[in-house]
Design a protein around this nucleic acid. Structure first.
Length: 524
RNA sequence: GGUCCCAUCGUCUAGAGGUCAGGACAUCGGAUUCUCAUUCCGGUAACAUGGGUUCGAUUCCCAUUGGGACUGCCA
């Protein structure tokens, strides 16, 4: 610990006098009164322009934990990196959460929720640290730091500003004033007294007891460039004053826990529970090796991709839910719960090893999910998607809701025989295209038996029930000495242009007599 | 290089000091069906390696190997 700075100097160092004392902040953001066991969590993305799967994954844990414990789930925007900020980004996050049914509760009492608007809080805490000698103003320039790092690397030392490399660690008030008079803006650094030879122990909710070396780096608390806090300092201030009980974050933060514990201890604040989640991986198509999902190479890493492609958002929730709460799938298959929200996840069971994102399994969840939908819900989902994301063709397909409903009703009446070939809204429309004359592509490759088609047409009556209809097909087959299936195939291809379709009778019923006759005649 | 985390079928996982190591997806085979999709039945498939501890280890400990994260005035 070093000698603290005077109030005047603190005001000069920070650019302005701090607005609050710690006691005032404690009063302004009182401990929450919640039922026992209630968890307070937050989803805290930095607005980088899009939401990726990892975001959704950890946000889902946050939300679920709060939801099942009658706690509070907040959305906090970590917009302290002014260099990388992107305008539309926050809207994308909010919109994505809404689409996945994740709602947050940003109570005014604990706001504001944009870190860029919480400067007063950070500066007030920093002032306290400056006052009691736990932090100091640092005037190291970017060039100096680069040089220090290069030298450290060359000498084989750990990089960073610590010990002898922390040149301004013991700067005196007079020297500070000198730099200030010079027009320099300092960063505020932690005055670390940690000893890397000593170890610090903590409990991670997922990984259990962990021991790491103490932190000895004089990490930056307040940046000189914009006087905004770094992630570490914002984490300390925000998660304390927002009264967060469980901090869910990616494992990339694992290495900085020692620092965070150090800061919480320094302030005498209660450490939140930490849940460090594993990254979502995929197999690289080129190398065949497992790796972290990447923004550049993997379009499916962007949740916007799933919405554009029309994946049922709930299916994605189910899939992700089963990953973060192993056992959910079994519970659902057994009928113990209806959906992920009903399943109680155990924080301790969140997997700690990297999971491969498995598109095949996602497809399965999607098929199951759509298979369980009512026709009207299915129609609604498909139409809503087409109107928001679809092209002209897809919008046309959903224009006539009655016809769309008829098309999508095929093979959905028998609960044991629900077709499971729908995966996404987009793909659903695509495989049904032949029902629309504008999109129907006759099959020119297929060798039709014109006699069969002609014979079928002669007896065809749209009013026939399925048995009568089938008997007529059998009769045609006998007449020409071909198999029943061959007749059906001729008709199938004639009507749909495809060799694979759902129930033929249903198709004809939905298409209507005119369309059936017209398409067959076109081949004669 | 340093610090830290992880390791059960192809994938996601369950599991306990003694189990035929269980499930799901994928895959393969069979039955049903006018094709496809369904549905039903069945099969293949795993405890990374080496040392300990123990009557006994895949389970506990150590090492090795492999994978991952971090090592920024980014979060």
């Amino acid at each position: 610990m070093r000698t603290g700075l005077s109030q005047d100097l603190i005001a000069r160092v920070l650019g302005a006098a701090p607005k609050y004392t710690i006691a005032e902040l404690e009063e302004k953001f009182p401990p929450r009164t919640l039922p026992d066991g209630a968890m307070v969590t937050r989803f805290a993305p930095s607005p980088t322009g899009f939401m990726h799967l990892g975001n959704l994954y950890s946000g889902l844990i946050d939300y679920k934990l709060a939801q099942q414990s009658n706690g509070v789930f907040m959305l906090r925007i970590e917009d302290t990196d002014t260099k990388r900020e992107i305008k539309e980004a926050v809207g994308i996050v909010i919109d994505s959460l809404a689409k996945f049914g994740i709602t947050y509760n940003n109570d005014e009492t604990y706001g504001p929720y944009y870190q860029s608007q919480r400067k007063d809080i950070y500066h007030s805490v920093a002032a306290e640290l400056l006052r009691n000698g736990r932090a100091y103003p640092c005037f190291l320039s970017q060039e100096e730091m680069d040089e220090i790092r290069e030298n450290q690397k060359a000498a084989g030392f750990a990089t960073g500003i610590y010990g002898e490399f922390a040149r301004y660690r013991d700067i005196t008030p007079d020297e500070i004033i000198e730099h200030l008079d010079n027009g320099e803006v300092p960063s505020i650094r932690l005055y670390s007294t940690g000893d890397p030879n000593k170890r610090i122990f903590f409990k991670d909710t997922v990984r259990g007891s962990i021991s790491v070396p103490e932190n000895n780096e004089d990490i930056v608390l307040i940046k000189s460039t914009d006087r905004l806090p770094t992630y570490h300092f914002a984490h300390l201030c925000d998660d304390h004053f927002m009264r967060v009980t469980h901090v869910v974050r990616g494992e990339e933060y694992f290495g900085t826990v020692a620092l965070h514990i150090q800061m919480f201890n320094m302030m005498g604040w209660k450490l939140p529970n930490y849940i460090h989640t594993a990254t979502l991986d995929k197999i690289d198509e080129e190398t065949g090796k497992q790796r972290k999902m990447s923004k550049r190479k993997d379009p499916e890493n962007n949740v916007a991709f799933f919405m554009q492609e029309g994946w049922p958002t709930d299916a994605l929730i189910e899939y992700l839910g089963n990953i973060l709460a192993p056992g959910y799938e079994e519970a659902k298959l057994k009928g113990a719960v209806k959906n992920f929200w009903e399943y109680e996840m155990k924080p301790k069971k969140i997997p700690m090893s990297g999971g491969l994102f498995d598109m095949k399994k996602l497809e399965w969840w999607a098929k199951e999910y759509i298979g369980a939908m009512s026709v009207s819900d299915l129609v609604k989902s498909v139409a809503t998607w087409a109107n928001e994301y679809g092209d002209e063709k897809q919008k046309m397909q959903v224009a006539d809701i009655d016809y769309l409903t008829a098309v999508l009703s095929i093979e959905r009446d028998n609960p044991k025989r629900i077709r499971k070939d729908f995966i996404t809204w987009k793909q659903t429309l695509a495989i049904e295209e032949f029902f629309w004359d504008e999109l129907f592509v006759p099959n020119a490759e297929y060798k039709y038996n014109a006699d069969v088609l002609r014979a079928f047409l002669e007896t065809f009556d749209i009013a026939d029930n399925k048995d009568t209809w089938w008997n007529k097909i059998v009769a045609v087959a006998e007449k020409f000495g071909v198999k029943n299936g061959d007749v059906a195939m001729d008709l199938r291809v004639a009507l749909s242009g495809r060799t694979n379709t759902p129930d033929l009778y249903s198709i004809m019923q939905v298409m209507g007599a005119d369309r059936v006759v017209k398409r067959i005649k076109a081949l004669l």
